[in-house]
Design a binder for these strands. Structure first.
Lengths: 340, 340
DNA sequence: GGTTGGCACTCATGCAGCCCGAGTGCCAGA
DNA sequence: TCTGGCACTCGGGCTGCATGAGTGCCAACC
């Protein structure tokens, strides 16, 4: 049904359309690619491809543009991921090198991805549930107020102000801090809260309620609900590339970007850093983003995905390039996290 | 030269144009406002206003639109700031109430401002230089690596990974932590580094270099350079209101928003929370944003500004409303910071 | 049977010409 | 100083038309 030449024609159509943003006709195709056949033959192939739903005509007297299904086939048929140029690899390394903390890593990654792909970049912070506790600190703010600080292995810092029902001695707090740390350091945050059930019992009757209160605040801070999942994005200026119909395609995307819940849904589940997920047009889990594609992959130290990063752009985007950039950045970020 | 009626006419033009986005003619003006005179009279006034450069005609057979100078006069003549409705005040209070930490406060403020004003909101994090140290923590990561964590009075947490040239005893580190804290807690971050010059001397010869190294990392983390100034923004979807010429007006703004340096320049120096700064069109310190206005004010506990927040939108914007929203949000945020 | 050249057909795009009406400036009169 | 009237301007929308890119189909060719 679809012989090699038809696939070649589809590939050529996708490449030309991505580059020119204009419907591509049979003549232009044979001019720009060495297909070895005449426009008439290409037309026949095009008719077949259209029959199968891989391409379509915006109007009768125009060239063809790929459908979502066409892009899908194109992406699936990509045999090898286009490697980045040495210059690009070097750019990634130097750009990420100077990062001083997690926030910095995330923001630099966003800018880097946006610049490499010329699209909108999204980077999720390491999920709490897949991180381990590195340190817990209790800082006294006033007689009846303390600040609870949790530092995770991935570099995230969560903090909560806790109002105490009654003042506590400094040495009791010090004791609590020590016990908290021995109980949860090294534990996954999803397990940590459970390990603390017995902790209050170890304290004097008078302090029990207050200790329980602090422990509860800790549990709440590291709770594995989605609200703890943070995301950053950037490169919105690249939306020019989306085309001119601002209201129908750009505004919905800008709105989606500001809804963390939607963003997280767009990124999807964290996959292995070596596998990149591509969602095209209607495959994207959001009704208003039907003209949008998402290229994403997981990242994390030790090839263990703890979060996702990727880019989002028009369905008419450079998939090979985006996939290469996304995987490369994910690899570097993973490495940085592994190094601490 | 400019009698009261002419000012009334200018005010009416600004109000109508902000609302309709279309040049306003003399007839429409007298229809929509009780000016008590005929269109012909208004035309004469308009001619005078145009003579003075407060309004202009986009083309000969069109109505008038305000110039930057016209908006400036309009804003300067605002006698009283329009108070927010009780519903809006309640919305602000409840929206900000549930914030758990500084990040949360900042992001909620951004969303709130964006929603209230229907424009792009910008909130600067409390500047390090104007905050004081609340606590310094040293967390051991490995034998030769520690994590330095600085918690400030405003809730910001700065962290740096420090590679040690030689392993250090836990009790030496504990000693260092204690001495660090007594030396800098309560100090302004801008002064803190200076207080540490003598600190390394207190340690054993062998540890001196390493301690100096850690102290240097501390100094670097709280350094008063602009790189430490963080900003958050949101409400970019409201850019629809900007008009349709994406490339000339929206893209430059999106680019500016992603440049922290530019953003900080837009916000300007933190003013007293009770005074709101309005920059109109060419007054904005950025060549490409000549069709943009910024409404900003400072915030901070104890009426002491430690950072700035505001909105940016088209020169054709609802100044009274924006000014009211900005000041109200700044007041609430200030209060939250004061409460801890 | 697959491929090719030819040909008639479709239709978006751009351009020229036209009308319409909102809005103005000016002037004479109240 | 204000007002009504009037001639004038000019952008925007509409129509009609020519253009050309691109197609589908068919007969001929390899």
């Amino acid at each position: 049904m679809l012989d090699d030449r038809k696939l070649d024609v589809l590939r050529a159509i996708v490449e030309d359309y991505v580059q020119t943003q204009e419907p591509v006709g049979s003549k232009a195709l044979v001019d720009r690619h060495q297909l070895g056949v005449s426009p008439a033959t290409v037309r026949n192939d095009m008719a077949a491809l259209e029959e199968e739903g891989f391409i379509m005509q915006p109007h009768t007297s125009a060239g063809r543009i790929p459908t979502d299904k066409g892009y899908r086939l194109f992406v699936d048929r990509l045999t090898s991921v286009k490697p980045l140029s040495p210059a690009e690899r070097r750019a990634i390394a130097t750009f990420l090198q100077g990062a001083v903390d997690l926030d910095d890593v995330v923001h630099r990654s966003v800018r880097l991805l946006a610049q490499l792909t010329q699209q909108v970049a999204i980077v999720q912070y390491p999920t709490l549930s897949r991180s381990t506790v590195r340190h817990v600190e209790i800082v006294t703010l006033s007689a009846t107020k303390v600040l609870l600080v949790v530092i995770t292995s991935s570099g995230r810092v969560e903090q909560r102000v806790v109002e105490l029902t009654k003042a506590m001695d400094d040495d009791v707090l010090a004791d609590l801090r020590a016990r908290l740390n021995t109980a949860v350091v090294g534990q996954h945050l999803s397990d940590a809260a459970g390990r603390l059930a017995a902790l209050p019992m170890m304290f004097h009757q008078d302090d029990l309620a207050t200790v329980a209160h602090i422990v509860a605040a800790f549990a709440e801070a590291v709770a594995d609900d989605k609200s703890g999942d943070k995301v950053a994005f950037g490169g919105t200026a690249n939306l020019v590339r989306f085309g001119e119909d601002f209201e129908t395609s750009i505004q919905p995307l800008l709105e989606a970007l500001e809804e963390h819940v939607v963003l997280l849904k767009l990124l999807g589940e964290a996959t292995s850093p070596s596998r990149v997920t591509v969602r095209i047009g209607h495959e994207v889990p959001h009704e208003l983003l039907a003209a949008t594609s998402v290229v994403a992959t997981g990242y994390g130290p030790d090839a263990e995905p703890i979060a996702t990063l990727g880019v989002v752009g028009p369905t008419r985007m450079d998939y090979p390039g985006s996939m290469a950039a996304v995987t490369a950045v994910a690899r570097y970020v993973s490495q940085m996290l592994a190094d601490g």
